[in-house]
């Protein structure tokens, strides 16, 4: 596992540094100047989850998978390393963006605004959901899967905007309902209990994603 993660780091270091630094700078700059940094954080979560996936799809582009799988590793280990390194990279990007947001010249946000538990949990939840949903797609369809997702995501965004316009009261009721359910869970479990429950839930979601990806990866032919 360690060898696989180091291999990815070694072979994609320029890409990780280049793309990762660009992502951190871009997000930190806009967060530091935003009136509503929460929105930027959620957008950031989307980008953090995409970055590791683009690294994985690079090997697809180079058709390097056959060689990788000729190394003494099982497919399960190969995939587990991808999940683990993906998470480490996402967390590193989030940490980097948060720190830079505080220290960037002219920032409106201090540590207390950036490191709110509510914001951290929201970012983790979005990252976990997106990463868990996208990994099986990338495993099964590679670069095409990622592009297809991005296109569908754009279309869904437009559909969502139209729905908001057309069914504002209904949607408000749904989002209000979700909000109330979260508040009720927070009250019942307490802040620490709620955070722990959410993290466990996100972990289970990623575990299910891993199982699904492993099923697809074992059937894939190179």
């Amino acid at each position: 596992m360690r060898e696989l993660m180091l291999k990815d780091l070694r072979l994609h270091k320029k890409y990780i540094i280049g793309f990762g630094a660009g992502c951190i700078l871009y997000l930190a700059f806009f967060s530091s100047r935003a009136n509503n940094p929460g929105v930027i954080s959620i957008f950031g979560a989307f980008l953090y989850s995409i970055v590791p996936l683009t690294i994985f799809t690079r090997e697809d582009k180079f058709k390097a998978s056959a060689f990788n799988l000729s190394l003494p590793v099982t497919r399960k280990e190969f995939l587990a390393a991808r999940y683990l390194s993906g998470w480490l990279l996402m967390l590193a990007l989030y940490a980097g963006t948060s720190l830079l947001t505080i220290f960037i010249p002219g920032t409106k946000l201090g540590p207390s605004a950036v490191f709110q538990v509510k914001t951290i949990l929201a970012v983790l939840a979005f990252m976990a959901i997106l990463f868990a949903a996208l990994m099986p797609l990338v495993v099964a369809f590679g670069w095409t899967g990622l592009i297809a997702f991005l296109v569908v995501f754009q279309v869904l965004g437009i559909v969502f905007m139209l729905l908001i316009t057309a069914f504002r009261p209904g949607l408000a009721a749904i989002t209000g309902g979700i909000g109330k359910a979260i508040s009720a869970a927070q009250s019942a479990l307490g802040p620490a209990g709620f955070a722990a429950a959410l993290i466990v839930l996100l972990f289970l979601l990623n575990l299910a994603s891993f199982k699904g990806s492993a099923f697809l990866f074992n059937r894939k032919e190179f």
């Binding site: 291999k7 070694r10 072979l11 390097a64 060689f67 000729s70 190394l71």
Partner: peptide, 24 residues
């Protein structure tokens, strides 16, 4: 194993490719 059309991470130098493979 030597593939008929060797395919590795194209933009990596040979030194890095070997260093990535060696620990296995």
């Amino acid at each position: 194993f030597v593939h008929e059309t060797p395919a590795l991470v194209e933009d990596a130098p040979l030194r890095d490719l070997a260093a990535a493979v060696a620990p296995f």
